Simulated assay, not measured.
Amino acid sequence: MARKSGGSAGVVVTGLTVAALAVIGFFAYQASAAQDRAEKPSASHSASPSSSPGSSSGDKGHKKEKSTALPKNSGTGERIVYALAERRVWLVGEDGRAERTFAVVPSTVSPKPGSYKVTSRSAHVTGSDGVPIEHVVRFTTVDGVTIGFSAALDGSMPDPDASHRTGGVREKREDGAALWKHAPVGTPVVVVR
């Protein structure tokens, strides 16, 4: 750095240097804080082993986490768990931990709680309600109605028409793709209340 002669010019240069360092320090602090926020998502944005985002903070967030917890007494090992009352499915790995959970829209005909196995699969078909569907994973039949998981090609998940007997448990397309990968024929399916 060049040395200035004269008292007041040296003070001005030193003052500008201090001010410049303060501005640089402030920007470095801001960048560091932004990085910390990016690495540590808040509770409102973090997700449990599910595809569902958490809700806002407070009791609502706690209730959301609790509602997505794998039901007790829902079997062991790799499986699919379907909770009728919660309208929710869990994909459980070999270690017994939920790898993914998601909401579903139940069919008008539901299976009784119990243990089943995937019996057949179809990549693309027309559902019993006339809607084109994909990733169909069937696991039982109730009174002549085949029950299985599927996703509508148009992404819709409307409540089924109670006047028609249908067996399709509808899920979002991305959830259907995940279930399809998780559930070859013979995969256990546990249905709970």
Rank of each mutant, 00 (worst) to 15 (best):
G25A: 00
A85E: 13
E171Q: 15
K40R: 12
E174N: 12
R88H: 01
H62T: 14
T166S: 05
V145R: 09
S42K: 10
D143A: 10
V192S: 00
M1H: 06
S32I: 03
V145C: 10
K4W: 07
P49V: 06
T146S: 04
A20R: 02
E86Q: 11
P41Q: 08
D59S: 13
S55D: 13
G25E: 02
A123S: 14
K40N: 15
F102V: 03
A162E: 12
S57W: 12
T140W: 01
F149Y: 09
G10D: 06
M157T: 15
A162P: 12
G93M: 09
A34D: 15
P106D: 02
P106V: 00
S128Q: 11
D143N: 10
D129C: 06
D59I: 14
L153S: 08
R37N: 14
A183R: 04
V18E: 01
V104F: 10
A2D: 11
G15C: 05
D129A: 10
S110T: 11
L84Y: 03
L153D: 08
P158D: 12
V145T: 13
G168W: 10
P111Q: 02
R121F: 03
R173V: 10
P113L: 06
E134T: 14
G25F: 00
H124C: 04
D59V: 14
S56F: 13
F149I: 11
V137H: 07
S120Q: 15
G75A: 08
T101R: 09
